[in-house]
């Protein structure tokens, strides 16, 4: 049986983390393929229902990437994201989604290396954690 490959959805701010992903590419910094990126204009525009939808569709992890506090292109959208994430984490826990599956990270446009580190770390941790309870396709998944 093949090794479990977690499915990670990344909601990345266009101005920082998305650009950092571009930079990681131009710098040829390879990282796990598990992350698939959706471009957002700001981390503050990530509606909680997008995260919930991703988990419902079987994502093993969700990563929101925003600008460092104070650096938001739209003044303070990242801080709104932070508040939302704090709340949503609690709600997800109630539904059995471990908080280790839902990450918010500040990654500036120049931090391509940091993007690689975050994605690598998240992938490794999710592999250790195993598939999400809502991931119906994962190999070797035990039905409870």
């Amino acid at each position: 049986m093949s090794e479990f490959e977690p499915k990670i959805v990344g909601f990345f701010c266009n101005w920082c983390t998305f650009t950092a992903a571009d930079l990681a590419g131009t710098s040829r910094l390879s990282y796990p393929h598990n992350i698939k990126i959706i471009r957002m204009m700001c981390s503050g525009m990530v509606d909680p229902k997008y995260v919930i939808k991703a988990f419902l569709n079987g994502a093993d992890g969700v990563l929101i990437g925003g600008c460092w506090p104070g650096d938001c292109h739209y003044i303070n959208g990242n801080l709104k994201a932070r508040r939302r994430v704090a709340m949503l984490t609690e709600i997800l826990k109630e539904y059995g989604i471990d908080e280790k599956r839902f990450w918010l990270r500040w990654i500036a446009a120049s931090e391509g290396t940091m993007l690689r580190e975050v994605v690598s770390e998240m992938t490794a941790k999710l592999k250790a954690l195993g598939p999400s309870p809502l991931n119906r396709e994962a190999p070797g998944k035990e039905k409870k």
Binding site: I38, M40, M41, G44, Y74, K80, A81
Partner: peptide, 28 residues
């Protein structure tokens, strides 16, 4: 177009053009 409103709107009335729920859901 930062989407602060759309990310929060409890009734789903506020949307950002080109980043609507349908479009993002389809991508997910």
């Amino acid at each position: 177009g930062c989407g602060s409103c759309a990310g929060h709107c409890p009734s789903g009335a506020a949307k950002v053009r080109h980043f609507t729920d349908q479009q993002i859901f389809a991508e997910i």
